[in-house]
Design a protein around this nucleic acid. Structure first.
Lengths: 147, 147
DNA sequence: CAACACCTTGTAGTAGGTTTAAGGTCAAGC
DNA sequence: GCTTGACCTTAAACCTACTACAAGGTGTTG
């Protein structure tokens, strides 16, 4: 049961130390125990919790989603139902964002192709296209922070 | 040449008035003319410029990218070269982000499938998976703000 | 006991806005 | 002429998920 200082934990899990403190401030991690010199100490339970958080972040979940998962995780009975629901929702978000970006990519390529077609013209067809008020450029739904 | 007040412009282009003021503060729009009562007034040149900005935002360009495009647009000779370059770069960003999200979606579906497979187990295989320190979950490259 | 790496807290900055507070302006109705 | 209400003004705080900095305390090594 070797407890780690924040820098050691940071190095082991490849998380900046400031980010670990930030998670504590945000309540994702509990207040860490302290040494006599007021240094934070992390035992294996905390290390696992941070690993969990970082895995979730690597899956692009928001801190709020992670918070919800942690509550389920901390609960006496680990409810698969809630976990599944949250995960399904997140998968849906990601799929939607992909579809949106693919539409976007298509529009960008259309726009890009204008210029090669009009190389002989006196002024840039791309800039003209972007100045137009028509519906050639679809309104994007604002993206969630983080996606 | 009917100049619009900010609220009218906001309604016509479906941009919140606060966002228009924000673009002015950020230097994307010039300081608007004012009425005697200090209300901003927008003529057709400004309306077109805002349309341009919003079209670019709808294509998920950052304000800095838009700033660069506006400089090219404002320049005496409209350089297609710079415009093309910027657009190609942006298309590349979008394509990369799509690829990244697709990898992500795959990982999420893998994780999700764990739970249906382990419905009879006493504890949730998804939560266990997320607590693991192994390489089953790939590190994501941090995403650009806005993408 | 000095140097240096590491830790502490607190504050501010990032992108692209959104929201709120406190107040000024203008047209219409009475 | 005065009030109501819609609209406008500025400035500042808030959002996500960090990151960076400053000023100072701690701990180890020479």
């Amino acid at each position: 049961m070797t407890a780690l200082k924040i820098g050691e934990l940071a190095a082991r899990l490849d998380v900046p130390a400031e980010t670990i403190r930030y998670y504590e401030r945000e309540g994702l991690l509990p207040q860490a125990q302290r040494t006599a010199g007021n240094y934070r100490l992390y035992d294996s339970a905390l290390i696992e919790r941070l690993t969990f958080i970082r895995n979730c972040r690597a899956l692009d979940m928001t801190l709020n989603e992670i918070r919800a998962l942690l509550v389920l995780r901390d609960g006496p009975d680990e409810e698969c139902g809630g976990v599944n629901q949250l995960l399904d929702q997140h998968i849906k978000h990601v799929a939607e964002r992909i579809a949106e970006l693919q539409r976007l990519e298509h529009q960008l390529q259309l726009l890009r192709s204008r210029c090669s077609r009009s190389a002989t013209m006196g002024h840039c067809a791309i800039l003209n296209g972007l100045s137009a008020g028509d519906a050639s450029i679809p309104a994007m739904t604002p993206s969630r922070p983080g996606l």
